[in-house]
Design a protein around this nucleic acid. Sequence first.
DNA 1: CTTGACCCCGTACTTCACTACAGGGTTTAT
DNA 2: ATAAACCCTGTAGTGAAGTACGGGGTCAAG
Lengths: 141, 141
Amino acid sequence: MHVLTSGKVAARAGIGTEKLRFYEREGLVPAPPRTESGYRLYPPETVDRIRFILRAKSLGFSLSDIRELLSLQDGAGSKAEVHQLTRAHLDAVTERIRDLQRIQGVLQELESCCSRRGSAKTCPIIRALSERDELLEGVSA
Amino acid sequence: MHVLTSGKVAARAGIGTEKLRFYEREGLVPAPPRTESGYRLYPPETVDRIRFILRAKSLGFSLSDIRELLSLQDGAGSKAEVHQLTRAHLDAVTERIRDLQRIQGVLQELESCCSRRGSAKTCPIIRALSERDELLEGVSA
DNA sequence: CTTGACCCCGTACTTCACTACAGGGTTTAT
DNA sequence: ATAAACCCTGTAGTGAAGTACGGGGTCAAG
């Protein structure tokens, strides 16, 4: 009784069966044994594994990061490796925040500039986009 | 002499010809007249138009946002519409920053937790991902 | 014994913004 | 005259993370 069909596993983890199959194809969830007729029969821990995946995803780890994280969880690696992966991701997130803040700053400036209703012929936002070359710098967006 | 072939336009705008053709297909750059033999002959303003696109892109506007912005620039709309588009984008950016900061906070916590080298059997990061349900909340990442 | 709920498979489509061909024609420079 | 450098077209592939679909097999209840 302690094996679950794909539908049960998916329901308990809060995903759909297609996604479950997708994670199997991607090597995130190991392929379970099958019945004679080909039905997958999962051990209940599978649900926890999926929850792990979802939690890591909510922290913005990519599926390939997660694949690594999982293989480390499976005992294949050191804590240092996990730490390193987290660190790298943290750095990426931090950088992304900085980029977005720069963008935010420009947009705020443009917006307030536009609110101060001057009698300009052209909208100041359009004008800035037409002229302000410094807007062109950086940002891997 | 004041018409430019696609290669010239692309070079002056700092993009490749494939990208230029792509922008034409996407309706961001108007289809220019052609020579007998089918070569595109662009008016020089096209270069400015592409620069406009690149600047807007560097602020994180999507191509479809930019299509709108351009049609407003082309005189089709009011300043209010530009303002509204900018405002919406600013809100989206701000929200994205908040999400990333939440993620950043959790990652920092996990990281420092891992640095404080305790004698845990499992890495605290892996443990958190295995257990901490609150990590599952929100974030459209 | 049949209906309905469940499961299987593989393939293809989605979004976004390109990028890369393949297979030609044209123009320019030597 | 010929080769290099340029231009044209259309289609297909990239990556990320799925979603959708078509067509079929299976299992439990009534």
